[in-house]
Design a protein around this nucleic acid. Structure first.
Length: 307
DNA sequence: CATGGCGAGAAACGAACTAC
DNA sequence: GTAGTTCGTTTCTCGCCATG
């Protein structure tokens, strides 16, 4: 199959809306600890509310701010107070280590918000759930690794094993050492990724039938902001010249934004391309035509191509 | 060898902007 | 004025590396 044919195949097999690989539905294991911590934070804030009204309490106040600071530094981000920091154009991380800023934020908080002592577990879990997207960092790579492992690929850690195996894959690693670090990849395969991206590494190196695929996986639900740059990044990967017949790059995109991009289609020739996603689509097609050795895949395409 | 600190990488949402 | 599009931002998690 050519890269354009597999691209067409991907268009016919969109992503499912619910993809279990990106679910985080279990309750937080440390929920009870979070609740205790939030209670302690609230106690401190309530105390401060009282003593700041009085005079000659500066020493005591200072001590309590110190205690509050320590509580906040070690994971106080699920408290209402931390949420309030976001409302004040900052984050609790930036404020918790700075006495002056912490005091300013606290005074504002006491003035603008009420403090109630109860900490319902469901509320804390809700704040955690709201931030579930931040946990998906490695999910994409894990998903593909799992699919490969379940279908006869071995996972290798060293270049020696990688060379000996027929169907295998390895994770890109960071740092300077390691067979699959940026330096190692350059040494072992003669390709240098991340020249224009401050040494950013890819996700997986897959080997099948003597062909080697350098893959970057992205998971997107919506476009905009950073995501647009992510798309640029994986389109650039399609245009990467590996310099060898059997070396390919693969841009993998899943999540429902993948469907949005694939469903654009090439409209009539006269129609002007108005928005970003249409332009992204056209850029992908153009890049595939110019680089027949490189591939764009979604989940179904990945399975079709590698299994 | 174990532990802690630090930087890189990941995605979602809401506000600002633009075009009609 | 409204609908649609683009831009800007936040913080967690993981792995590397230094330190004890």
């Amino acid at each position: 199959m050519t890269n354009l044919e597999i691209f067409e195949f991907c268009k016919s097999k969109p992503e499912k809306h619910f993809d279990q690989f990106y679910f985080f539905v279990d309750k937080d294991k440390n929920l009870a600890e979070h609740i205790e911590k939030i209670k302690r934070i609230k106690e401190k804030l309530i105390t401060l509310k009282e003593i700041l009204k009085r005079s000659n309490t500066e020493k005591l106040a200072e001590q309590i701010f110190e205690d509050l600071s320590i509580e906040l530094i070690n994971g106080g981000s699920y408290s209402e107070f931390a949420c309030f920091a976001n409302a004040c154009d900052t984050s609790i991380n930036k404020v918790s280590r700075n006495k002056k800023l912490l005091r300013e934020l606290t005074e504002l908080y006491l003035q603008k918000r009420e403090i109630i002592e109860i900490v319902p577990a469901e509320w804390v879990q809700a704040i955690i759930d709201k931030g579930a997207s931040r946990r998906k960092g490695k999910s994409g790579e894990d998903k593909l690794s799992k699919i490969l492992l379940q279908n006869g690929f071995s996972g290798t850690k060293t270049i020696k094993d990688f060379i000996e195996a027929n169907k295998t894959f390895a994770d890109f690693t960071g740092g300077e050492s390691g067979d699959f670090s940026p330096v190692g990849v350059y040494k072992n395969f003669g390709v240098k990724f991340g020249k224009k991206t401050q040494g950013k590494k890819l996700d997986l190196i897959i080997k099948k039938d003597g062909q080697i695929y350098f893959l970057e996986a992205k998971h997107l639900k919506v476009g905009g902001g950073v995501q647009d740059k992510q798309i640029i990044e994986i389109i650039n990967l399609l245009n990467f010249k590996t310099g060898k017949e059997n070396h390919h790059t693969v841009s993998f995109l899943d999540g429902i934004y993948s469907n949005a991009l694939l469903s654009i289609g090439v409209g009539s020739r006269s129609r002007k391309l108005k928005n970003k996603i249409q332009k992204q689509y056209v850029d992908v097609i153009k890049s595939l035509k110019n680089n027949p050795g490189n591939f764009w895949l979604n989940t179904a395409g990945f399975e079709k191509f590698f299994l």
